[in-house]
């Protein structure tokens, strides 16, 4: 489903300074697989996701989704994305926001209505659906953003810190939702700091440190708890600074 092949990415801070965000990233995610991407802050996880969605472009290397190059809009026809700390149009109600999201993917009004009701109920937003998002709590906004990412029933779901800003009840809702996506045969790419959730939900996990993929493997093959493995990989990478 997803292929990164020897991808490099640097950011230019000014005329002289460049920061290497990713180095020789080669990574693949199979169809119907739940892949967890973990790493310290600033490791390159969000960069990886933004490259996948053509929000930024690689300096070299290739990225494909279902065989389509990532810089071709067709690759994103069946993709749903939840960014980290999403801002959503707070002048809209949740219903309106989901309708907009659905229309962006060419859904009919009838299909949007049906799917919206399902998602709003599942994410406990049905009572607040007609209120403006500007009056929502952080957790409600996060859940609205997740609903918008799923409204069009995407094949590939990309979640960047899906549990961010959620209370334990909210986290349970999202956890169950991701488990449901997994059971439904969706491909899910999750970037998260919540390692216990990654361990429980994911089929495979990749650890990125300082722009390099230092480890990737099946969760069922782990001989250590994921947190210990994570710390070991980070220590081996020589990372001393906590960002």
């Amino acid at each position: 489903m997803i292929e990164f092949n020897d991808v490099h990415k640097t950011y230019r801070l000014d005329r002289q300074k460049k920061v290497t965000a990713l180095t020789s990233l080669t990574l693949s995610v199979s169809s119907q697989e739940v892949f967890g991407c973990i790493g310290p802050n600033g490791a390159g996880k969000s960069t990886t996701i933004k490259l996948l969605l053509d929000l930024i472009r690689p300096d070299s290397g290739s990225i494909t989704i279902n065989g389509h190059p990532a810089n071709n809009e067709a690759s994103r026809a069946r993709v749903g994305y939840l960014p980290e700390n999403p801002y959503i149009y707070d002048f809209l109600t949740a219903s309106e926001y989901l309708a907009y999201s659905g229309r962006l993917s060419g859904m009919s009004p009838a299909a949007i209505k049906l799917r919206s009701e399902e998602l709003l109920t599942k994410l406990k937003l049905d009572q607040a659906a007609k209120r403006r998002i500007s009056g929502y709590s952080k957790g409600m906004q996060q859940r609205t953003a997740i609903a918008a990412a799923l409204i069009h029933d995407p094949e590939l779901v990309v979640l960047d810190e899906p549990m961010s800003g959620l209370d334990p009840l909210g986290r349970k809702l999202i956890f169950d939702l991701i488990a449901e996506l997994k059971a439904g045969g969706k491909t899910v790419f999750i970037s998260s700091h919540v390692l216990t959730d990654i361990e429980r939900l994911c089929d495979r996990v990749g650890i990125i440190v300082q722009g390099s993929l230092r480890y990737q493997g099946g969760v069922s093959e782990l001989t250590l708890p994921l947190e210990e493995l994570f710390l070991q990989v980070v220590a081996e990478a020589g990372l001393s600074e906590v960002k």
Partner: peptide, 9 residues
């Protein structure tokens, strides 16, 4: 907020 649209086709 542009991400919602541009992450689609």
């Amino acid at each position: 907020t542009v991400y919602l649209a541009l992450s689609r086709a």
